[in-house]
Amino acid sequence: MAKSRQESSMARCARVREWLPEYDYGGPGVWQRWQVARHLGCCPECARELAGLRRATALLTALPTEPAPADMWASLERELARVERAPAPARPGRRVVPALAAAVAAALAVGLGVWYPRPEPAAPLPVASYVRSHLALSRAQPFAPGAGIDTLVVLTAVGEGR
């Protein structure tokens, strides 16, 4: 009985220790964190293990901090000047307005027919030669199918100022 309780406790320690490294970072999950918190309260060994993990990352503060090279700004400024000579990309927020305006103008242009391709105007009807040729035909062959003058054609052409 006591042996099985000891095995169960060891198994619990092993499981909790799998979760311990993430514990301080808000992992691994709500249920697991609850298990860890409960176990730490009654297991000094696992509590020591967590303290050891914390010390390991605390030692990172021993890392030396090295300042950046002193001439870094001067060097960067040269690069910035070079970049600024090239056309800079516009802010997306500001790019929306001209794009929108262009879209509206295009829509209006289509709506008003400005942009829409107009049909090619019909070639002007040569009224004089038309009348002349039909008069000649009506004299020579008065009963030919095209001999008569189409009054509508003549009137239309005259109305358009041709």
Binding site: P21, G52, T57
Partner: peptide, 24 residues
């Protein structure tokens, strides 16, 4: 994902503990 970051931090911490065992 935040879970991935937590997991990597945890593993890094365990690695560091192992590598710095003498100093610990």
């Amino acid at each position: 994902a935040e879970g991935t970051v937590k997991s990597r931090l945890g593993r890094a911490r365990a690695d560091l503990r192992r590598h710095l065992a003498d100093w610990m």
